[in-house]
Nucleic acid binder design. Sequence first.
DNA 1: TATGAATGAGCCTTCATTCAT
DNA 2: AATGAATGAAGGCTCATTCAT
Lengths: 206, 206, 206, 206
Amino acid sequence: MPIASTSRRAVRQPSTADKRELILRAATKLFARRGFFHAQVADVAKEAGVAAGTVYLYFENKDDLLISIFEQRMQEAMAEANASLKGVADPVERLHRLARVHLGHLGRDRDMAVVFQVELRQSTKFMERFSSTLLQDYLNAIRDAITGAQHEGTFRPEASAMLAAKMFYGALDEMATNWILSRRRYRLVAQADDVVDLFVQGLRKR
Amino acid sequence: MPIASTSRRAVRQPSTADKRELILRAATKLFARRGFFHAQVADVAKEAGVAAGTVYLYFENKDDLLISIFEQRMQEAMAEANASLKGVADPVERLHRLARVHLGHLGRDRDMAVVFQVELRQSTKFMERFSSTLLQDYLNAIRDAITGAQHEGTFRPEASAMLAAKMFYGALDEMATNWILSRRRYRLVAQADDVVDLFVQGLRKR
Amino acid sequence: MPIASTSRRAVRQPSTADKRELILRAATKLFARRGFFHAQVADVAKEAGVAAGTVYLYFENKDDLLISIFEQRMQEAMAEANASLKGVADPVERLHRLARVHLGHLGRDRDMAVVFQVELRQSTKFMERFSSTLLQDYLNAIRDAITGAQHEGTFRPEASAMLAAKMFYGALDEMATNWILSRRRYRLVAQADDVVDLFVQGLRKR
Amino acid sequence: MPIASTSRRAVRQPSTADKRELILRAATKLFARRGFFHAQVADVAKEAGVAAGTVYLYFENKDDLLISIFEQRMQEAMAEANASLKGVADPVERLHRLARVHLGHLGRDRDMAVVFQVELRQSTKFMERFSSTLLQDYLNAIRDAITGAQHEGTFRPEASAMLAAKMFYGALDEMATNWILSRRRYRLVAQADDVVDLFVQGLRKR
DNA sequence: TATGAATGAGCCTTCATTCAT
DNA sequence: AATGAATGAAGGCTCATTCAT
């Protein structure tokens, strides 16, 4: 037993939370590489180093595995976004921060990105669940920044803030999808500022 | 064989092409409503009014059904796009035309839109196939319009045309996805011009 | 091909009804010998000479297999009973006929008897289904014979006809169960008359 | 902790025997309500307020649980029967006593009755075990009473005592099964005397 | 061409049992 | 003695695909 150990966790005895996370990572990897339907629960278990039945001690069923990946990672991304926005008042800067967190988060873990950009969209069931809750919050955050900029006179007041927010999200989403489908290996987050700039400036010469 | 009949089509005997189309429509409907994996080939056959085995006279396998929906409809959309662009020189107008064809095509058949926006994205296998061919052509068409506008001095030359093209596509794609997931029933194509305008003008006040 | 074949059935091409019966017989055999829960559907299929999936073309699920054995055989027994009772007015003789059909039917097919006496009673679900319908009809038939004999003055009027009917059924049922559990091989139906006689005469000396 | 406790039992610390009984009661309840195969050992443990593993400290396996219920309760019933018969010489009265103990015992605990009348009969394995030992003793006791009555001249000598014994048992068994399957709530033991009377008198008018 | 009954590989999930603590 | 997390064998059922007619 280590001297001055600060917690029992230090002895590397995998706790319940550890094992859940372990299975979630294994599922992310296999879902990303084989696709949700072609990945077998037994293989997820093997990848996680546990028995097949163990998966069912931590998750309801195979669907729950996919949903849990989404919820777990989304929650982490939300926390990251909130931290990044804290104390930032300038609407344009807030858009930059949101774009950086969005692409930064996905760009950090390719398997997870594949699950988010591909596997989670395989059925309207998952998509509706996603789009009606967390995505709505995200779109609202974008829209609020845009409205804010309109109120302070930076953005054109006649543009529909919600339409613009969806376009903004769609553009980032497309960047992410392009990244996972591309053979080239580039830093996804590097595109964040350019995307925001183009959205703000528009294409037309002034 | 009828003697003076000009074609067998005249007697409304469903021809080979008719039956293929029939099955494709049935598949589109069921894939859209139940999801590709949950839709059964036997049900597609029943919906089309043929026997299960008949599906395999027209299509290799279940995957081929999905791919064929994509290719068939995409081909039609491409023809529509080319017709719409014919003789139009103004780059900004070309962007408008592309957006209208894109959203117009999807907005005309909800089941087909679901297949395009949801079911076709359920595996990187389909997505890679899609993005490396037809999508590439489409992105190039957008990019060319943008480059054209840059050359004629309408658009800012420093903006990356390819990045802008992807953003443009991503924005339209998001409009389509929002439309199929929304309970509200609105005309998707009506958003085409606003999307293009915002892309061209940008958000910032001049 | 037989010369004077009266029907297509004569060519021994197993028809749908044949296959259903085939599976039912295989299920009866395996359920009787291994028990319903320990018998596997795959083995039933193998015994019937069909693929596992084929069982599900004819039956909903494993439970349905058990229920169908019951309903099929019960229906046959009912027909036999009705034929045997036709034109017989004497109540005591009717009791004899019922007992002979009851024990005769079970005694003719040991596997089926095991399913009826053992496997069908493994859950209140099956038992309630059984006892609330067909068994009720059977008990009523016994009771009616008893009531008839009471009205004509042969049987004591103070005895409860329904209680007596249940006892009568219980006694026959016990004979059947004893028979299938016994190592000795005797003719079950041979006990029918003795059981009825003892019921009618009682044990007490007159 | 009480000061003058005379024994650990006094503080209601469940002893080994207590816990075994606790688990047996829990098993009886769950087997009766869900059926032996659908009841899970883990649920039996939960119902008994112990951990799943604990069940295996007291019983070999799940089958042993069912067998133990049978043996435990049967033993109690046998003791009850012996006490009830003690000092009773009249054969007819002995039959009355046996019937009353039989139906009285089952009628006192519905869950246990379900286990005896339904769950224990789910396989020839259990049934053979049962019928070749305890049931044999019981049948012999009935038969002996009948033979006794025949010797003293009360019962007809030409009736087969063993056949009559089985019929007697079968009739009581049917009463019990009817009781557990009936929605009506009546006292099972109340039927004991009527059953015996009818057996002794017979149906025919004298 | 068309049929649709038959196939059988494949997979999710359950749950009795074990065993390190 | 007691725990309860972990195991992994087992099996019911589905469904894409085939093929004799």
